[in-house]
Structure formats: structure tokens, C-alpha cells
Design a protein around this nucleic acid. Structure first.
Lengths: 224, 224
DNA sequence: CTTCAACCACTAAAATTTTCATTTTTTATC
DNA sequence: GATAAAAAATGAAAATTTTAGTGGTTGAAG
């Protein structure tokens, strides 16, 4: 599940990113309203955690705008304001829930789970299927036709980034960044070795890993 | 050398962080003026790369404020503005150099090197000394009385974060974050094993690693 | 002052990642 | 098509990281 955090305070934002990441969610974050709006418009987030007080564009405007643009990401509003009116306005503007600051992380977690259960419109994508392979980014499991394939951490991350691209080419530098961040680098050869290892593991359970190479560009899943 | 990047545009900011990190600098970044001001005031940056157009507090105000507060970090201004007046104002307000957007990364690199050479007031701290141990964060080397000690990547990062704290306690979670980021975790046991390994290596060249444990809190360098 | 439990240090072994060398595949060109 | 050059895949060794287990220290409670 992809979550966008739009929160002014650096400290809270950071805490949310760390906490939510640890719960297995994919998280992006920004402290700026207009940056948040852009991210929300051009990516498909399952959930947006939205502060109302933001630089450049305030949260309520952001929310109204994305709803106008037919973005159906779930939205949880965070705010220091407490009036009933605000809550009503927020819900009218298309929010799914409302949390008054300060709040505990567990409280937020509970709300997320509750929204996740309700789950009507939005399709929460923590499971990626390609041919007969199933990657569960929440459970960190990988399987071929009900045969579990045991992947190491880096192997998993590489498959995750390639599978997530759903048919688009992912460059080795992009893969490297996803696996070790931008301070480190994973060599091309190392990525190849990992892929080679995953292919071998897939073959052991009778499958053929649907990851192809685009010479000079990177890797992609081959749709069948 | 510690660099702070205060730049509104997410894209440019990211490029700068990646580029400068790759050159071996320690980089922090923010897109917000007031956040930048706080960071500049409460950390000792060797260099601040400063955009003038910022949300909340504009770059010029930030610069004037930190100079009033006797912060002597070097400052390179980035700006889309081009008038001579602006340059003069910037330099008067205490900037060390001025770069007009768009600029190439190499150009910025050259200015940084030039400032680094001039280096009068600010003491560029890419070398951390503790007792007879010398850690060079630029060259990624570690030595005891001229004996080079060969550290692996994680060993180096652990020593770096502990040495950088200059006597303050660093928690294992902080160490973990510095080494593998907040998406991953380095277990306490693993950190201990690495430290143990570094201690052994230090002993091999006749030194005693000045890293002590504060039971329940973390590690610190023991000043002697 | 003693005891106990929690915490830490260390070692060795296991697991993972990375590198190196070699083979295979792909693509461009004749 | 044949051939050569470049890129990718592979297998195996080397290096690094992580885990598990053991023994030692510390500090709090009785």
C-alpha cells in the first residue's frame, strides 16, 4: 500500500515515514503543499495523510483539488484545529477520517486499518501478480503457483522494484537506488548475480522468472 | 565536510544531495526557509548552499540572520535573479559566492573547491581525530598513529557516526539509521559484532578504540 | 553485601552479498 | 547469414554481514 504523507513539521513527518515504513507500507513524504498536490495528482496513492497547515497550498485546498480531479485516494486529515465545523468541512471535502493533533502513532495505525477494511473504491496494492508469480510486499513473500520461493532481502527488493514497474523498464541505477539508497551503490554485476540467483530459485519450483533485459536500459517484467 | 542544501525545487535539491554525497560530502537538505534557518543555527555546517526563493523565510533573510547569530558557515547563493545589485547584496549580506541558475554541477563543484582552498575561518571537518585515531570521512580511511586500519563499509559508518558525535552518546537505533537508513534495521547484535571487529583491528596495530558503552543508551567516544 | 537479571563483548559459524572469470546471448555490420 | 564486439548471465570464490551462543559486567533489589 502506497501512502503519501503531507506534513509541515519535519519531526512529525519523519516519525510518520519511519513508523509507516516499518509497518511495511511504501511511503513518500513532503512538507510542502504544492509539492504534495503534484505528488497526489501524478501518482496513485492508496492513502494520503494530510496536514491542513502547509506552506504554499493548504491541506483543504489540496484535498478539494484532487477530488475535483477524480483522485480517489483515501485521505486522513491531521490537524491541530478542533472545531466540529472543521471536521464536517474536511469530511465534506472528501476526507475519509480526521485525527486531532497530538495523536499517538497507534491511533493513526488503527484508523489506517479501519479504512483499509472498509476498502471500497481504492484497490490496495500490496500484492503484485505477474503470470503465475505472486509478490506480497506486506508479507515480504514471493511465490510461484503456491510454491513459496525464499528470497533474501536484496533479492526481494530487486524483484519488488521490477515488478512494481508493471512492464516498464527499470534501469540498474534505479534498482540500485531502491535497494541501497542514493548514498550507496549496488554494482550492475551484483544486480545480475542476484537476478541470476532468483531465476535459479524460480526454476527449482518449476517456474520461469518473467524478468527480461532491455540491453543498455535495464530490466522489465515480461507480460505474458 | 558537512553541507546544508536549502533549495525549494525538489528536483534540484535531490540532484544536489545525490551529487554532493557521491563526492563524499555529508549532506543535509530542506526545501523550506525556516527549517533551513533552524538547521543552520543549530548545526555546524561548513557550507550552506542557499536558494533565495524559499517558502516561509527567503534566502537573504536566512543568510542575514545566521550572520547576526555569528554562524560562520560558508555560503554559496543559488539564484535565478541576475542583477548586479543582487550579487552585491548577497555578498554584502555575507555570502561567499554566487551562482546563477541554471548552472552545471561541475561549476558548483569548482566553487566549492575554491572556497575550500581559501578556507580561512571555517575549519573544514572531514577529518575527525580522537586520541591517536584519525578518521577521514572524505578518503574513507581510518588510522591509528599512522597505521592504516582497514574497515569495511559498515564498520566505517558505525565509527563515523560515533566519532561525529564527539563525546555524546549515540543510540543503537541512531547508528542503525545512519548505516542502513530508516527502511532497514541493523540489529544491536550486529552493531556489537562490528564494533568488536573494529576493536580487534585496532588492537592489531597496538591501539585501543576509544568507544565506550553507556549501558541501555548507546555508544560514545571516550575523551582522554 | 549478595543475588539476579539484563545488558554487553566476543567468537565462531552461517548466511548473504559482492567480485572475478568465463560463457552465453544479443546486436550491428559486412 | 556470418562474424565481431558489446552486454548480460552464470558459477564459484572471496568478502562482508548477520546470527547464535557463551561468558563476563553492571546495576538494581532485597
Amino acid at each position: 500500500m502506497k501512502i503519501l504523507v503531507v506534513e509541515d513539521s519535519q519531526h512529525l513527518r519523519r516519525s510518520l515515514v519511519v513508523g509507516l515504513s516499518n509497518l511495511g507500507f511504501t511511503v513518500e513524504a513532503t512538507g510542502d503543499g504544492s509539492e504534495g498536490l503534484n505528488l497526489a495528482l501524478y501518482n496513485q496513492f492508496d492513502l494520503i495523510i494530510l496536514d491542513l497547515m502547509l506552506p504554499n497550498i493548504d491541506g483543504m485546498t489540496l484535498l478539494k483539488t484532487i477530488r475535483q480531479e477524480n483522485i480517489h485516494s483515501k485521505v486522513i486529515i491531521l490537524s491541530a484545529r478542533v472545531t466540529v465545523d472543521d471536521r464536517v468541512n474536511g469530511l465534506l471535502a472528501g476526507a475519509d477520517d480526521y485525527l486531532v493533533k497530538p495523536f499517538s502513532f497507534d491511533e493513526l495505525h488503527a484508523r489506517i486499518m479501519s479504512i483499509q477494511k472498509r476498502g471500497e473504491i481504492s484497490h490496495f496494492n500490496n500484492v503484485i501478480k505477474q503470470n503465475d508469480f505472486v509478490l506480497d510486499t506486506q508479507q515480504k513473500s514471493f511465490a510461484y503457483q503456491d510454491n513459496l520461493i525464499d528470497l533474501t532481502k536484496n533479492e526481494f527488493k530487486i524483484i519488488e522494484v521490477i515488478f512494481s514497474a508493471k512492464g516498464n523498464v527499470v534501469s540498474t541505477s534505479k534498482i540500485s537506488e531502491s535497494v541501497v539508497g542514493h548514498f550507496d551503490e549496488l554494482s550492475k554485476n551484483s544486480i545480475e548475480a542476484h537476478l541470476s540467483s532468483v531465476r535459479r530459485k524460480a526454476k527449482q519450483v518449476g517456474g520461469r522468472l518473467p524478468v527480461k533485459n532491455r540491453r543498455g536500459f535495464g530490466y522489465l517484467v515480461e507480460q505474458s
